[in-house]
Design a protein around this nucleic acid. Structure first.
Ligand code: DCP
Ligand code: MG
Ligand code: MG
Length: 1154
DNA sequence: ATCCTCCCCTAC
DNA sequence: TAAGGTAGGGGAGGAT
């Protein structure tokens, strides 16, 4: 779901940091300090940008805080600058921004940490804890009860901030702007509101004057949520409850169009490639000429529109829905009760023409539009406008801005025209989007260069060991080559390594002349294409980047724009790339970029120079490895058009429901839409996923009818069969949506996706995957023709394999040859491993540049293990300049899948994930079925399968004799296993739901039917992976529960009062739930702790299993517990024990009764 | 370890 | 007024 609330991201961050540095400076030094942080146990997560950990530590230590280098149950607060919502939730502890410490130091008093919460709309663990326990009048410390003054027990009222904050209306606006999705935290939904409803408890109630702008998450009080006037006709007609909403919405959605077009063009390209027998890989001889272009239209939507408005080419123009003139959102439908902000200003009327003036009739600007700009011309960009910005902001930047409407039909036509040109002239086309594609023109370059050389004479290729190539100068001149920069290292390593050759023999290296010619010819081709595209599109301009890899081509395009061509030579490539910001690398968005920034990584050079493992620690294994390579200008991907793996739809705009019926009615339409799309796309799905967005604050978001800041949820089912009607889809979707269980008013977005696709022909008959991408399917050499449908779920219980598999009739003979089974099971693995080890294999296979999988080599005879091995080795050597055995294991994740697969199968590298093992299992298990006489078998299979289906009898794993299972044909066995897995998953689902219900009941009973508590419960169980364990106060971790209870005892036992009854009830319900969930041992452990604390001993010597659990941290009450506490414990024990006896047939031993 | 689900992120 | 869709890579972390 798209999200464009980042308009002010950078500025906000910068402003925050300035203030923070100042605060820290003030806070350091001095020798006697008030111990304002006494009792605070900190864990600092991640990196700090405004100070060092050491500096911060020093400052807080002298003021009484404890800083640990690890997270423990004693931790009271986690300090972090950045963390995903889900991580925050999973920690189940207060996660607070460092400003809390800094500002507390600044003011020399402990401020309320809740004012410095790291933003997460849903921190159910924390909130549920508060909502339930606190509403019992139970004071409880954070974590293990070490809360002291800063603990949760002293949580202040969120609304109880310094009123001063609200007094200056300009602050709110100027600091955060209307665009900030976070600007409404004060209205945050959920149990925090329960807290907020309580009287403000603390005098230290939040940050005061100087740095009130730091926190983009907290909106000053004195501000009511903007509300939507549902009686406004315009609103009524445009929200999701309006008749015909979906059709109108999708028809008007640019992003929907982009997605549709991309899918279409992907199919178009792959079909074209298949029909013309084109593949992205070349005979090894072509490798040195490898030339990839990235073609991208300049400001595409705008260009299309400007074709009919040549008068406007030099004025700022944008494409958007709104003219920006009509009544601002705040003036119609949305009632903006912003403190101090005047009501909406009405523009006179939109200009009738296409082009609208940016000022209203009375000359007053009305820069409020939240309409998004799809595309803006370069004149507009010069004003600072960018694709995706809000129109309102753009109008501020360029008051003379002209807004033109979408013309989807024309855009579509231009896009098709573009692709016609590309398909006709390129060796291979990978569709990227309606205005963009990668093309491979290697063969053309080669042909033309060779022709030119034939005429003029001169050497084109240079042998690796050839004349001018041995000295350093030659290597330095390498830069004029179009080849990958790795070639250079290949050459060096060859020298170091002595005799071994890298297998790039037949291609050789391009001579200087060759290199120059390549560059010139490639540029000519590009210019030629641009002219053709301009003509074909009626004047739209394409820019083209050229390189020897997709990456370099892509990067070159940035330089080429606008209206140009840029060829990135490998020699300059590394330098060029390293100078770029990491944000310029494909795959790096604002999140990764800011993660990097936290570690001081700004440019690609920074990343390239950092040791790979460090990069991976920051970014993850695969992303880290990939980007580390990208940052060096290395990219081994090859072009392909990938086959569809899923289909679905989402709506996150205009979702405003009041009732379940409205939701249901919408879902009906929605499923209709999606089912229709699936039919049209010729797919059916077994695996259904529903997504939903839940708003995190009350009131309207900045974007008109937008979703605002939300929590995302998803639920999925795997069905035994594909859904084959809209109504079945609807039924499943509603189940899932209900499971997610979001109140209709809170719903802000819905999505529905199908996976595990079966491809179906026009008459609904399943057929083989249409080879849309070709490659993926081709990589399974074991004759998919014989793989039964059953293989949708692989034996290894992964269901990731392509779902269908009746024979693939449409696979050409040539394709069949390519699918020569070079890999078929574990034996082959070992064999090939041996072959690879043989020095004789080295260099026996010429290099294939740019990542052509060995499987595709047409010259490779079937089963030629040795050659395959050599091939893999040669290819790696060519690409990375090192021998396979020298490969740093941590770059493995960055290898393109095909190469990785090849290496894994060859046993040269460890499998990255399950893929290798799974495939091996498939292969070996499938050998029998792969025989040519599959027909009869297939019929049997079909019959058996049908029988199974008809019986609707899916035996459980335990019900099937393993012997019987083994005796079945492999595919039938797999089928059964699939069924069992589905069944198992469904059983789990039911258990989960049961538990969830229990929890909700328990929670709402305990919290006095507080909706918020139930809601928090829902979120907790509905959020993270539906915990398999029951929750106590939103907490599932056993130690955390013990800590919580211990803290409760610490607080309440000394008070000389009886234990709070509802708290007891909650504990009882939790323990019962534990027992029901099959964890009596945990219940036992809890009981034991409680009994010890109330003075009844801990029953050592009892038969219980649970041994040395951590007990309490502080033992406030050393003597015997009060009698009423002990009595309460006994009752509790009996209740729980009754349940234990019921479920296990034997109870705990009430040791204290003797 | 590996699987699997529920996210998150990115690109156009 | 406004039309913040979609598909795929990937990671975290619980279950097994
Ligand atoms: N946030 C965005 C980005 C793009 N698009 C649409 C409109 C663009 O015209 C088209 C192509 O996207 P590009 O990223 O290629 O952007 P442009 O073609 O507009 O400009 P450029 O010259 O930078 O390629 O996709 C959109 O609707 N919303
Ligand atoms: Mg473009
Ligand atoms: Mg583009």
């Amino acid at each position: 779901m798209a999200y464009s609330g980042w308009h002010e991201y950078g500025e906000l961050k910068r402003r925050k940091q300035d203030a923070q540095r100042a605060a820290l400076a003030r806070g350091a030094g001095g020798d006697s300090h008030r111990q304002i942080f006494a009792g605070v146990v900190l864990y600092v997560n991640g990196y700090l940008t405004m100070t060092t950990l050491e500096e911060l530590k020093r400052a807080v230590l002298v003021r009484g805080a404890v800083v640990r280098d690890h997270l423990s149950s004693a931790t009271t607060h986690i300090i972090a600058e950045q963390m995903t919502d889900s991580k925050v939730r999973s920690l189940r502890k207060p996660v607070v921004r460092p400003e809390w410490l800094l500002e507390s130091i600044n003011q020399d008093r402990l401020l309320d940490w809740t004012q410095f919460r790291l933003f997460t709309g849903a921190a159910p663990g924390q909130r549920s804890l508060l909502a339930s326990l606190r509403s019992h009048g139970v004071g409880v410390g954070a974590g293990a009860g070490a809360g002291a003054g800063a603990g949760l027990g002293e949580t202040a009222d969120v609304d109880g901030m310094d009123p001063e904050l609200g007094d200056d209306p300009s602050d709110a606006e100027s600091a955060f702007g209307d665009d900030d999705e976070h600007a409404h935290l004060a209205n945050t939904l959920g149990p925090e509101r329960t807290i907020a409803a309580a009287p403000a408890g603390s005098a230290a109630s939040g940050p005061q004057h100087p740095h009130k702008r730091w926190n983009p998450d907290i909106m000053p009080p004195g501000q009511k949520p903007r509300t939507l006037d549902l009686t406004d006709p315009f609103v009524r007609n445009n929200i999701a409850t309006a008749p015909g909403f979906l059709k109108r919405y999708f028809a008007a959605s640019r992003l929907h169009h982009l997605s549709i077009w991309k899918a279409e063009l992907g199919l178009l390209a792959s079909r074209h490639m298949r029909l013309h027998g084109k593949r992205p890989d070349h005979p090894p001889a072509a490798a040195p000429f490898r030339t990839i272009m990235h073609v991208d239209m300049d400001c595409f939507f705008a260009s299309v529109a400007l074709r009919s408005r040549p008068d406007l080419v030099n004025t700022p123009v944008v494409i958007a829905h709104s003219s920006g003139l009509a009544p601002a959102a705040s003036a119609a439908g949305v009632d903006a009760q912003m403190a101090g902000s005047s009501g909406g200003r009405y523009a006179a009327k939109p200009t009738p023409s296409n082009a609208a003036s940016a000022t209203t009739a009375d000359g007053q600007p009305a820069f409020k539009s939240t309409s998004e700009i799809a595309s803006c011309n370069y004149a507009a960009r010069a004003c600072g406008i960018a694709n995706g910005s809000f129109l309102g902001g753009a109008l501020k930047l360029a008051p003379n801005l002209v807004v033109l409407p979408y013309d989807f039909a024309s855009i579509d036509a231009c896009s098709k025209a573009l692709y016609r040109v590309l398909l006709e002239h390129a060796d291979f086309v990978q569709a990227v989007s309606c205005d963009e594609a990668y093309i491979d023109v290697t063969l053309q370059v080669k042909r033309r260069v060779e022709a030119a050389v034939a005429q003029s004479g001169g050497a084109l290729l240079v042998d690796d060991d050839g004349h001018a190539d041995t000295d350093d100068e030659a290597e330095d001149d390498f830069g004029d080559d179009l080849l990958l920069p790795v070639r250079r290292r290949a050459s060096k390593s060859r020298k170091r390594g002595g005799a071994s050759r890298d297998g790039v023999g037949s291609g050789g290296k391009l001579s200087q002349t060759g290199q120059a010619m390549c560059a010139q010819i490639a540029t000519e081709i590009a210019e030629d294409l641009r002219a053709k595209i301009r003509d074909a599109t009626g004047g739209c301009i394409a820019s083209i980047g050229i390189g020897c890899s997709m990456l370099l081509a892509r990067i070159a395009t940035k330089r080429a724009k606008p209206n140009g061509v840029f060829l990135l030579r490998p020699a300059s490539a590394r330098e060029h790339v390293e100078a770029l910001g990491i944000r310029d690398l494909p795959g790096v968005g604002h999140v990764l970029a800011s993660k990097c920034a936290e570690h001081g990584l700004k440019t690609c050079g920074d990343v390239a120079r950092m040791p790979l493992p460090d990069v991976q620690r920051i970014l993850g294994d695969k992303v880290g490895a990939t980007l580390h390579q990208f940052a060096q200008g290395i990219d081994a991907r090859s072009l392909e058009n990938k086959e569809r793996q899923s289909i679905g739809a989402e709506v996150t705009w205009g979702i405003r429901f009041q009732t379940q019926n409205q939701v249901a009615a919408f879902m009906d339409d929605f499923c209709q839409e999606i089912y229709g799309r699936a039919v049209r796309a010729g797919v059916r799905g077994k695996h259904i996923t529903v997504k939903a967005k839940k708003r995190l604050y009350e009131g309207e978001p900045p974007k008109f009818l937008g979703h605002g800041h939300c929590a995302d949820f998803s639920r999925s089912v795997r069905l035994a069969k594909c859904v084959d009607s809209k109504d079945k889809l609807l039924a499943e979707a509603m189940k899932l949506l209900n499971e997610i269980d979001i109140p209709p008013v809170d719903l802000r977005g819905v999505g529905l996706h199908l996976r595990q696709l079966e491809f179906v022909d026009g008459r609904g008959v399943p057929r083989a995957a249409p080879l849309a991408g070709g490659q993926r399917v081709l990589q399974f050499p074991t004759a998919p023709t014989s793989m039964p449908t059953l293989l949708a779920a692989a034996a290894s219980s992964s269901l990731e394999a392509p779902a269908p598999s009746t024979p693939m009739k449409r696979v050409s003979h040539a394709d069949r040859l390519l699918r020569t089974p070079t890999s078929s099971g574990g034996a082959g693995k070992r064999k090939r491993f041996g072959a690879l080890g043989s020095p004789a294999a080295l260099g026996s296979e010429p290099d294939v540049r740019g990542g052509a999988p060995g499987f595709f080599s047409p010259r490779k005879p079937r089963g030629a293990d040795l050659e395959a091995a050599a091939h893999a080795r040669a290819r790696i050597k060519a690409m990375f300049g090192v021998d396979v055995d020298e490969i740093d294991p941590s770059v493995v994740p960055a290898l393109p899948p095909d190469i990785r697969k090849e290496l894994e199968e060859a046993g040269l590298i460890g499998t990255l994930a399950a893929a290798g093992a799974k495939r091996a299992a498939d292969d070996s298990g499938d050998d029998g079925a792969a025989s040519p006489s599959a027909r009869r078998e297939k019929r049997q299979r079909g019959a058996l399968k049908r029988e199974l289906d008809d019986m609707h009898l899916l035996p459980t794993a335990s019900q099937i004799d393993p012997e019987v299972l083994r005796a079945l044909p492999p595919d039938i066995r797999r089928e059964l296993e699939t069924q069992m897995q589905i069944q198992r998953s469904n059983r789990d689902r039911e258990m989960r739901m049961q538990r969830q219900q229990q929890q909700q009941q328990a929670a709402s009973a305990a919290a006095g039917a507080s909706i918020d508590a139930a809601d928090a419960q829902k979120q907790e169980s509905g959020r993270k992976l539906r915990p398999q364990l029951p929750l106590f106060a939103g907490v599932c971790d056993h130690d955390a529960v013990l800590g919580l209870l211990s803290g409760w005892l610490d607080e309440d036992m000394p008070r000389e009062c009886a234990p709070n009854q509802s708290a007891l009830g909650e504990i009882r319900d939790y323990l019962v739930a534990l027992v029901d969930a099959g964890h009596p041992d945990r219940a036992w452990s809890v009981l034991r702790m409680l009994s010890r604390r109330v003075g009844l001993g801990d029953g050592d010597g009892a038969t219980s299993n649970s041994g040395g659990h951590r007990t309490s941290t502080t033992r406030a009450d050393k003597g015997k517990g009060k009698p009423d506490w002990a009595g309460s414990f006994c009752e509790l024990f009996d209740d729980v024990n009754a349940c234990v006896e019921r479920t296990t047939g034997a109870g705990f031993w009430p040791w204290w009764r003797k």
